[in-house]
């Protein structure tokens, strides 16, 4: 197990310090009736030979981290110097792939997570007051968006929001705009992705909260009623404190899950409008020329991001555990 967890991380770090070999060029003289021309060609054999000798590529140190497709320090400095307003600066930064991905990933994570917690909580409260027989059925259908493969779920929605699909054409009629297309504009695509994110993860929050509601102390609830607490006050002062630890748990899990958002971007075919850190890696790995070094660099940055995101939680778990033992 350790082998498969730590070796890849080491491998990623090493790879990120290297870069692909430069191709070996040779000058070839082509002679025909009109005279001789010199042209440069890629010497395929020599390039392959170098590749076979050192598959990792050249060692470049931290250069990968600061080139244009990652932290882009020089571009950033230049943008800072040449632009006057913050808006302009933002525009320039947004054109750099890594920052674009980071901005989307963070916006996505911190919008979707609270929304899905709220939605899941409301569903749980509503389902809890339902008739016993209906509950099973409702839970069954509620689980579907979560259980279904993320890629498949996003595809299903993607076909529905197509301008010729049912939701797409409904929106067109609703706004009376025949050219309206969710796929064409960046803000709309972002909203769509986030709606998908909430749709996909709300059931998880719902199930957890629903289980929490089952263990709600009835005595406290009844005494609150006797003391004259209204329905809303009972939810605010009895129910919410009771499930507060679960909220932390759901928030933690969902922060982690949303941070690695990838499948919806592939499924919605949205890479032109939104890229996340994970989709950047996939792009680097999946293309014709597999850019291992670039992918590895983004991976290391992502891992660091996860560590930063998790560090308060890890610290707290550590402290709690120490107290318990």
């Amino acid at each position: 197990m350790l082998l498969f967890i730590f070796l890849p991380i080491i491998s990623v770090v090493t790879q990120s310090l290297h870069i692909e070999h430069e191709q070996v060029f040779v000058e070839v003289e082509n002679c025909d009736f009109f005279g001789c021309k010199k042209s440069t060609m890629v010497d395929v054999e020599a390039t392959a030979a170098i590749k076979a000798e050192k598959p990792l590529g050249r060692f470049v140190g931290l250069e990968n981290y600061f080139n244009r497709s990652h932290f882009a320090s020089s571009e950033l400095a230049q943008a800072w110097r040449t632009t006057d307003s913050f808006g302009e600066f933002y525009d320039q930064v947004y054109n750099l792939p890594l920052y674009r991905a980071i901005i989307f990933t963070l916006v996505y994570t911190f919008t979707v997570t609270p929304l899905l917690i709220i939605l899941g909580f409301i569903i749980a409260i509503a389902v809890n007051s339902l008739h016993q027989r209906l509950k099973g059925l409702v839970i069954f259908f509620s689980l579907l968006p979560m259980i279904v493969t993320p890629l498949i779920g996003s595809l299903i929605l993607f076909w529905m929001i197509d301008s010729r699909g049912i939701i797409g054409s409904f929106l067109q009629q609703f706004f009376n705009d025949p050219d309206l297309s969710l796929k064409a504009s960046t803000p709309l695509m972002w909203i769509t992705l986030m709606v998908y994110g909430v749709w996909h993860s709300a059931p998880f929050a719902f199930v957890i909260f629903y289980a929490g509601l089952q263990t709600l102390p009835q005595d406290t609830l009844e005494s609150a009623m006797i003391d004259g607490a209204s329905r809303w006050e009972r939810i605010r002062y009895v129910v919410i404190p009771h499930i507060a630890p679960l909220v932390t748990f759901v928030a933690l899990i969902q922060l982690m899950d949303n941070f690695r958002v990838l499948e919806p971007i592939v499924g919605f075919n949205a890479s032109a409008h939104a890229t996340s850190l994970s989709s950047n890696i996939l792009n680097d790995l999946g293309g014709e020329s597999q850019l291992f070094a670039s992918a590895a660099t983004t991976s290391v940055i992502t891992i660091l991001g996860v560590v930063v995101l998790l560090s308060p939680v890890l610290y707290r778990t550590w402290r709690d555990w120490d107290r318990k033992v």
Binding site: F4, I5, L7, P8, I9, I10, S11, V12, Q15, P55, L56, I253, M256, F259, R260, L262, L277, S278, I281, L282, L285, Q290, F292, A295, A296, S299, V300, T302, I303, V306, L309, L310, V313, L314, T317, W321, V325
Partner: peptide
Amino acid sequence: FWLLIIALIFRAMPPITLVAGYLLP
């Protein structure tokens, strides 16, 4: 405790970052 921590870290790590490490070897 360590199991929990590893499970947690692994849960948090986007699998694609690990795949990037596997691919070349």
